[in-house]
Write a protein that binds this DNA or RNA. Structure first.
Lengths: 332, 332
DNA sequence: GTGAAAGCGCTAACAA
DNA sequence: TTGTTAGCGCTTTCAC
């Protein structure tokens, strides 16, 4: 319709790789408009071997909870915002712990993805099978939350649970607390382990005894948290402070403490972990450890884009650990 | 390597459209294994014009909140679980209200998607521009939360806010309440309007006056909810019950009421809306209206798959309204 | 039951 | 600056 070859149309659309005269360019643009023409992404992808798509593989234990964690939403937000700005699309894919890697292998090796961001809830070697499948996709991959085994050479954006819990616990010790409890999460998740470890290290750093009775809870369920708190309160010498492994657990603890007539923080101090939206909204506002979830998504997007641009380069293969920070509010 | 033509390989991989002899089949399968061969999705997509991908377009007012609403996560879960089971992938795309439709047009008309699920927060005609862009993709589309204008002929999975709020308010009236307040959400969202309307209709159904002073709040922010509750309590004749437009608002109200020394439900009854995870976890447990978010995602997935299978058929073009239900718990 | 070959819509190397 | 054309990797028609 513009009276030119397909090559020129391509040059116009892509601004290259060869120049076009302004008048031809104009004619082509008008024809495109008139015909309501849109390039087919699959044909282009087939030709240039780029799909403009990044996969977000979210690994978790339960298919119905993959996207429900407070993390996922923020991470997804950071990721999509950044990728959209660079004309990349996001394909989300739930991957269940223990699932046959062949399931995700189908997506991974189909050539649909230019890059991959994978949320890991465990540390190596538990994630090796999944990462092995990902490595066969032969595209840049950035792990978030936890890093993968070094041999894969993937980038990672993590945060330091251990240090966060250490800071929270140390803060309580400085404030004069000597019997500090930990309300732990599901230890299958590395973050739960890290938070427990940070708590324990803070105690030992200050020469405080590690009383096993002061560590309660072993999953993320509210009911477990409730009974854990109850057990703490029934101890011969109850704790004067609690470090919870998540804000959610802390909220439940807060409820339970109040219900039993304890004032927070006067009778018992409480610190959460994550700094979810709600933390600043309850009364008293929850003292907690801020984890920069949205930044993680953003940073992961940036890194994976670098990896894609680099064509097998390795500048992106760093392990970035974002700082976590104790936010002092009303509960400790 | 298997000593056969590419045609036969294709027949083996796709189980058709022509038969293959068992021995050849076996040879091909072994070669596939040995070569670690995986079909390229883009080449196949180019040829058969199917991408095995469904787009989830999430419309909202703020780029940073698109995926943070309690709805998004559940919807995404329902959607991905169902689509994964049918070998379809999900591409998520944030669409901002008022944004140039050309932005999403790029994705929509690129031929990447076999079908579309779009979350709408407004009613027609506000969504016409977005749906116009979607209709140019020429693929089945299912709206969720709110339906689009009839002329587009898209399917929809919705739920009845009006009726939910009506049920909640009516319940309070039956329990003897006569001064019932409504803590409203951001009226730019149709659900906020629907919930307000349901509340008002329930009052008028029972011949109760509609006191404008009893309707407070006009966004989803906690701070607004707090000041709204405060205003209610300072009224010459304060309400004895509050119907909130969301669980989040209700939680804030619950906090604020307690803070001011009111017992819930003894002094003031409270009903939320959504039945988010937390509703059953606070003490007292929140009485609320259950909205089956995950089902919505699941149902939308099923419908869009029907639309894709139907090849322009119209069986999927129904508007499904899922029931909402008052869940009696501890706050009313 | 199998092979040869066309062609999906695009890009880019090569030729002019 | 533009046109011609090969070919990305697959499916499927047509011939055998």
């Amino acid at each position: 319709m513009a009276g030119v070859s397909t090559a020129v149309v391509s040059y116009v659309i892509n601004n290259g790789p060869r120049p076009t005269s302004p008048e031809v360019r104009e004619r082509v643009l008008q024809a495109i408009q008139a015909l309501d023409y849109y390039p087919n992404a699959f044909a282009r992808g087939l030709r240039v071997r780029r799909t403009n798509t990044v996969g977000l593989i979210v690994n978790d234990y339960n298919a119905l909870e993959v996207f429900l964690s407070p993390y996922s939403a923020s991470i997804l937000t950071g990721l999509t915002v950044q990728l959209k700005a660079h004309n990349y699309y996001v394909m989300v894919y739930p991957s269940i712990v223990g699932e046959d890697p062949e399931v995700s292998g189908q997506l991974l090796r189909s050539g649909r993805l230019d890059g991959i961001v994978v949320r890991l809830v465990q540390d190596p070697p538990a994630t090796d099978a999944l990462l092995e499948a990902i490595s066969e996709a032969n595209v840049p991959c950035v792990c978030i939350e936890r890093a993968g085994a070094a041999r894969f050479g993937f980038g990672a954006v993590t945060f330091d649970d251990e240090q966060g819990a250490h800071a929270a616990t140390s803060y309580l010790i400085e404030r004069g607390h000597r019997r500090i409890a930990h309300l732990s999460g599901d230890r299958r998740y590395s973050i739960a382990q890290g938070r427990l470890a940070g708590y324990q290290r803070a105690l030992s750093d200050r020469g405080l005894p590690a009383d096993p009775a002061l560590v309660v809870g072993d999953d993320w369920a509210p009911i477990t948290a409730r009974s854990g708190v109850k057990r703490l309160l029934e101890l011969p010498v109850p704790p004067t402070a609690i470090v919870a492994a998540s804000d959610h657990l802390a909220f439940v603890a807060l409820e339970e403490l109040r219900l039993r007539g304890y004032r927070v923080p006067e009778d018992i101090a409480l610190i959460g972990f994550d700094d979810t939206d709600l933390a600043a909204q309850v009364q008293p506002q929850l003292t907690t450890v801020h984890v920069p979830m949205m930044d993680i998504g953003l940073r992961a997007a940036t890194m994976v884009l670098e990896g894609i641009a680099d064509e097998g380069g390795s500048a992106y293969r760093q392990i970035v650990t974002l700082p976590v920070e104790l936010i002092r509010r009303g509960t400790a």
